[in-house]
Amino acid sequence: MTSQTTLLEHYAALDSAAVSDALDALGLPPGQAGFLPVWGTPKIAGFAVTVQLEPYTPGPSGAHIGATAVADANSSNVIVVANDGRTDVSCWGGLLSLGASLNGVRGVVADGACRDVHEAREIGFPVFAKGRIPATARGRLQQRSTGEPVQLGGVTVTPGDLVLADETGVVVVPGGHLEEVLERAQGVAAREQAIAADLRAGVALHEAMRDARLAGITEEH
Protein backbone atom coordinates (compact mmCIF):
# COMPACT_ATOMS: atom_id res chain seq x y z
CA MET A 1 0.00 0.00 0.00
CA THR A 2 1.30 3.44 -0.97
CA SER A 3 2.04 5.78 1.94
CA GLN A 4 -0.01 8.94 2.42
CA THR A 5 3.06 11.08 1.81
CA THR A 6 3.78 9.37 -1.51
CA LEU A 7 0.14 9.59 -2.57
CA LEU A 8 0.12 13.33 -1.93
CA GLU A 9 3.33 13.79 -3.89
CA HIS A 10 1.91 11.91 -6.87
CA TYR A 11 -1.42 13.73 -6.81
CA ALA A 12 0.31 17.10 -6.48
CA ALA A 13 2.05 16.38 -9.80
CA LEU A 14 -1.33 16.03 -11.57
CA ASP A 15 -3.96 18.58 -12.55
CA SER A 16 -7.65 18.56 -11.75
CA ALA A 17 -8.63 17.66 -15.33
CA ALA A 18 -6.59 14.44 -15.38
CA VAL A 19 -7.98 13.39 -12.01
CA SER A 20 -11.52 14.27 -13.10
CA ASP A 21 -11.13 12.09 -16.21
CA ALA A 22 -9.95 9.23 -14.01
CA LEU A 23 -12.94 9.64 -11.69
CA ASP A 24 -15.26 9.64 -14.71
CA ALA A 25 -13.70 6.43 -16.01
CA LEU A 26 -14.37 4.73 -12.68
CA GLY A 27 -17.95 5.96 -12.41
CA LEU A 28 -17.16 8.41 -9.60
CA PRO A 29 -18.25 12.08 -9.40
CA PRO A 30 -15.97 14.23 -11.59
CA GLY A 31 -14.55 17.69 -10.94
CA GLN A 32 -16.58 20.61 -9.61
CA ALA A 33 -16.84 24.06 -11.18
CA GLY A 34 -16.98 27.46 -9.53
CA PHE A 35 -14.15 27.07 -7.02
CA LEU A 36 -11.37 29.44 -8.01
CA PRO A 37 -8.19 30.62 -6.30
CA VAL A 38 -8.74 34.05 -4.79
CA TRP A 39 -5.13 35.03 -5.48
CA GLY A 40 -2.49 33.77 -7.89
CA THR A 41 -2.56 30.30 -9.41
CA PRO A 42 -1.79 27.90 -6.55
CA LYS A 43 -2.45 24.16 -6.62
CA ILE A 44 -3.15 22.12 -3.51
CA ALA A 45 -3.64 18.44 -2.76
CA GLY A 46 -4.38 17.11 0.70
CA PHE A 47 -6.64 15.01 2.87
CA ALA A 48 -9.90 16.69 3.85
CA VAL A 49 -10.67 18.14 7.26
CA THR A 50 -14.29 19.26 7.08
CA VAL A 51 -16.36 22.09 8.55
CA GLN A 52 -20.14 22.46 8.16
CA LEU A 53 -21.68 25.91 8.64
CA GLU A 54 -25.29 26.96 9.04
CA PRO A 55 -27.26 30.21 9.49
CA TYR A 56 -26.77 31.87 12.86
CA THR A 57 -29.38 31.40 15.56
CA PRO A 58 -29.21 33.37 18.83
CA GLY A 59 -28.00 31.36 21.80
CA PRO A 60 -24.87 30.42 23.74
CA SER A 61 -21.77 31.05 21.66
CA GLY A 62 -19.96 27.99 20.36
CA ALA A 63 -16.59 27.44 18.74
CA HIS A 64 -15.42 30.15 16.37
CA ILE A 65 -16.08 29.17 12.77
CA GLY A 66 -13.23 27.05 11.45
CA ALA A 67 -11.12 27.21 14.61
CA THR A 68 -11.57 23.54 15.52
CA ALA A 69 -10.67 22.43 12.00
CA VAL A 70 -7.55 24.59 12.02
CA ALA A 71 -6.50 23.05 15.33
CA ASP A 72 -7.13 19.52 14.02
CA ALA A 73 -5.40 19.98 10.65
CA ASN A 74 -1.74 19.49 9.77
CA SER A 75 0.63 19.55 6.82
CA SER A 76 -1.16 16.70 5.04
CA ASN A 77 -4.56 18.41 5.11
CA VAL A 78 -6.82 20.70 3.12
CA ILE A 79 -9.68 22.30 5.06
CA VAL A 80 -13.08 22.07 3.36
CA VAL A 81 -15.71 24.59 4.49
CA ALA A 82 -19.29 23.76 3.51
CA ASN A 83 -21.56 26.82 3.39
CA ASP A 84 -24.08 25.82 0.72
CA GLY A 85 -22.43 28.03 -1.89
CA ARG A 86 -23.48 31.28 -0.19
CA THR A 87 -21.68 34.35 -1.49
CA ASP A 88 -23.53 36.96 0.60
CA VAL A 89 -21.32 36.42 3.66
CA SER A 90 -17.71 35.44 4.27
CA CYS A 91 -17.04 31.99 5.71
CA TRP A 92 -13.23 32.29 5.78
CA GLY A 93 -10.95 35.19 6.69
CA GLY A 94 -7.43 36.36 7.34
CA LEU A 95 -6.94 35.12 10.90
CA LEU A 96 -8.11 31.64 9.90
CA SER A 97 -5.66 31.72 6.98
CA LEU A 98 -2.85 32.72 9.32
CA GLY A 99 -3.68 30.04 11.90
CA ALA A 100 -3.95 27.36 9.24
CA SER A 101 -0.71 28.46 7.60
CA LEU A 102 1.14 28.29 10.91
CA ASN A 103 -0.13 24.71 11.32
CA GLY A 104 1.25 23.82 7.90
CA VAL A 105 -2.19 23.29 6.33
CA ARG A 106 -2.00 23.06 2.54
CA GLY A 107 -4.96 25.33 1.84
CA VAL A 108 -8.72 25.75 2.11
CA VAL A 109 -11.62 25.11 -0.25
CA ALA A 110 -14.73 27.05 0.73
CA ASP A 111 -18.18 26.41 -0.72
CA GLY A 112 -18.98 30.05 -0.20
CA ALA A 113 -17.21 33.41 -0.12
CA CYS A 114 -14.10 34.57 1.71
CA ARG A 115 -12.55 37.87 2.74
CA ASP A 116 -9.12 39.29 3.67
CA VAL A 117 -7.71 38.10 0.37
CA HIS A 118 -4.63 40.32 0.73
CA GLU A 119 -3.75 38.62 4.02
CA ALA A 120 -3.89 35.16 2.48
CA ARG A 121 -1.80 36.38 -0.46
CA GLU A 122 0.83 38.01 1.77
CA ILE A 123 1.46 34.76 3.69
CA GLY A 124 1.16 32.57 0.59
CA PHE A 125 -1.82 30.61 1.89
CA PRO A 126 -3.97 29.10 -0.91
CA VAL A 127 -7.68 29.86 -0.67
CA PHE A 128 -10.23 28.54 -3.16
CA ALA A 129 -13.75 29.93 -2.91
CA LYS A 130 -16.87 30.82 -4.88
CA GLY A 131 -16.50 34.53 -4.29
CA ARG A 132 -15.11 37.37 -2.21
CA ILE A 133 -17.05 39.65 0.12
CA PRO A 134 -16.12 41.85 3.10
CA ALA A 135 -19.28 40.95 5.08
CA THR A 136 -18.46 39.19 8.35
CA ALA A 137 -19.85 35.82 9.42
CA ARG A 138 -20.47 37.26 12.88
CA GLY A 139 -24.20 37.21 13.55
CA ARG A 140 -24.82 35.51 10.19
CA LEU A 141 -23.22 32.06 10.38
CA GLN A 142 -22.34 29.48 12.98
CA GLN A 143 -20.46 26.21 12.96
CA ARG A 144 -22.66 23.12 12.97
CA SER A 145 -19.96 20.44 12.95
CA THR A 146 -16.35 19.54 12.28
CA GLY A 147 -15.07 16.20 11.04
CA GLU A 148 -18.35 15.03 9.50
CA PRO A 149 -19.24 14.36 5.83
CA VAL A 150 -20.19 17.58 4.01
CA GLN A 151 -21.40 18.64 0.57
CA LEU A 152 -18.94 20.52 -1.63
CA GLY A 153 -20.88 21.63 -4.67
CA GLY A 154 -22.46 18.40 -5.85
CA VAL A 155 -20.01 16.02 -4.17
CA THR A 156 -19.91 14.51 -0.70
CA VAL A 157 -16.59 15.03 1.07
CA THR A 158 -15.76 12.66 3.92
CA PRO A 159 -12.84 13.39 6.24
CA GLY A 160 -9.80 11.67 4.77
CA ASP A 161 -10.91 12.00 1.15
CA LEU A 162 -8.29 13.59 -1.06
CA VAL A 163 -9.04 17.09 -2.33
CA LEU A 164 -7.10 18.58 -5.25
CA ALA A 165 -7.72 22.16 -6.33
CA ASP A 166 -6.11 24.23 -9.07
CA GLU A 167 -7.06 27.14 -11.31
CA THR A 168 -9.43 24.90 -13.30
CA GLY A 169 -11.52 23.59 -10.41
CA VAL A 170 -11.74 21.06 -7.59
CA VAL A 171 -11.81 17.26 -7.54
CA VAL A 172 -12.57 14.98 -4.60
CA VAL A 173 -11.15 11.45 -4.56
CA PRO A 174 -12.92 9.10 -2.13
CA GLY A 175 -10.56 7.63 0.45
CA GLY A 176 -11.29 4.08 -0.69
CA HIS A 177 -10.28 4.78 -4.31
CA LEU A 178 -7.05 6.74 -3.93
CA GLU A 179 -4.69 4.29 -5.60
CA GLU A 180 -6.89 3.26 -8.52
CA VAL A 181 -7.81 6.87 -9.33
CA LEU A 182 -4.14 7.84 -9.15
CA GLU A 183 -3.14 5.08 -11.57
CA ARG A 184 -5.85 6.12 -14.04
CA ALA A 185 -5.01 9.80 -13.74
CA GLN A 186 -1.32 9.17 -14.35
CA GLY A 187 -2.29 7.25 -17.48
CA VAL A 188 -4.44 10.16 -18.67
CA ALA A 189 -1.60 12.61 -18.09
CA ALA A 190 0.92 10.40 -19.89
CA ARG A 191 -1.35 10.02 -22.93
CA GLU A 192 -1.95 13.76 -23.15
CA GLN A 193 1.77 14.46 -22.90
CA ALA A 194 2.40 11.99 -25.73
CA ILE A 195 -0.28 13.63 -27.87
CA ALA A 196 1.20 17.07 -27.21
CA ALA A 197 4.63 15.78 -28.24
CA ASP A 198 3.17 14.42 -31.49
CA LEU A 199 1.48 17.73 -32.25
CA ARG A 200 4.75 19.59 -31.76
CA ALA A 201 6.41 17.06 -34.07
CA GLY A 202 3.93 17.87 -36.83
CA VAL A 203 1.30 15.13 -36.48
CA ALA A 204 -2.13 16.34 -37.60
CA LEU A 205 -4.50 17.22 -34.76
CA HIS A 206 -7.26 14.86 -35.92
CA GLU A 207 -4.79 11.96 -35.97
CA ALA A 208 -3.04 12.78 -32.70
CA MET A 209 -6.35 13.16 -30.85
CA ARG A 210 -8.16 10.10 -32.18
CA ASP A 211 -10.78 8.96 -29.68
CA ALA A 212 -9.31 5.53 -29.01
CA ARG A 213 -5.98 7.03 -28.03
CA LEU A 214 -7.52 9.58 -25.68
CA ALA A 215 -9.55 6.82 -24.04
CA GLY A 216 -6.44 4.71 -23.54
CA ILE A 217 -7.69 1.92 -25.81
CA THR A 218 -5.00 -0.30 -27.29
CA GLU A 219 -5.37 -0.36 -31.05
CA GLU A 220 -4.25 -3.19 -33.30
CA HIS A 221 -2.95 -2.33 -36.75
Rank of each mutant, 00 (worst) to 15 (best):
P29T: 02
P126N: 09
P29G: 05
T158F: 00
M209I: 06
K130T: 01
A110L: 07
P42D: 08
V19A: 08
S90K: 02
G216A: 12
Q143D: 02
D21I: 01
A190P: 00
H177D: 13
A165H: 06
V108R: 09
A18Y: 01
E220V: 14
L36V: 13
G112E: 05
R115Q: 14
S3H: 10
R184L: 10
A13V: 01
T50W: 00
A208R: 11
G202H: 09
A137W: 11
N74T: 13
S20H: 09
G93F: 10
V172N: 06
K130N: 03
A194C: 02
A63M: 04
N74G: 15
V117K: 13
L26P: 06
A120S: 15
P174V: 04
R138Y: 06
G99D: 12
A13P: 02
T5A: 15
G31Y: 09
A18K: 01
E192W: 11
N83M: 07
E207N: 06
T136D: 13
A67E: 15
V157K: 00
A45P: 06
M209V: 13
R121S: 14
L7K: 12
E148T: 14
E9I: 10
D111V: 00
G175K: 11
G93Q: 12
G46A: 07
E219M: 14
I44R: 04
S101E: 09
H64E: 10
G154Q: 15
A67L: 08
P58K: 12
G147T: 04
S90Q: 06
V170S: 05
T50P: 00
G216P: 11
A194K: 12
V163T: 05
T41A: 14
H10P: 00
F35G: 04
A204Q: 13
G104N: 12
R210D: 11
A189K: 14
Q4E: 15
V181N: 10
T57C: 02
I44H: 05
V127I: 15
P29V: 02
G187A: 13
A185M: 04
G154A: 14
G85F: 00
T146G: 04
Q4A: 13
A165E: 04
G85T: 01
T57V: 15
V171E: 03
Q4N: 13
W92I: 03
W39I: 00
V150N: 02
I65H: 03
A67K: 09
D24F: 03
R121Y: 08
P134A: 13
M1S: 13
A13C: 02
D21A: 14
E119S: 11
V78A: 07
A120Q: 11
V81R: 01
D24V: 08
L182P: 08
P60S: 13
L205N: 08
K130Q: 12
A33L: 12
R86L: 05
T2S: 13
R144N: 07
V109A: 05
Q142S: 10
L152D: 00
V49R: 15
H64Y: 04
E180F: 04
S20Y: 10
L96C: 07
V78F: 07
A137R: 03
V171T: 07
A18N: 07
I123Q: 12
S101A: 15
R138W: 03
G27Q: 13
A185Q: 04
A18M: 01
A208N: 09
R115H: 10
A18W: 00
A22F: 01
D111N: 05
V38E: 10
A67F: 04
G66M: 06
V171S: 05
Q32H: 03
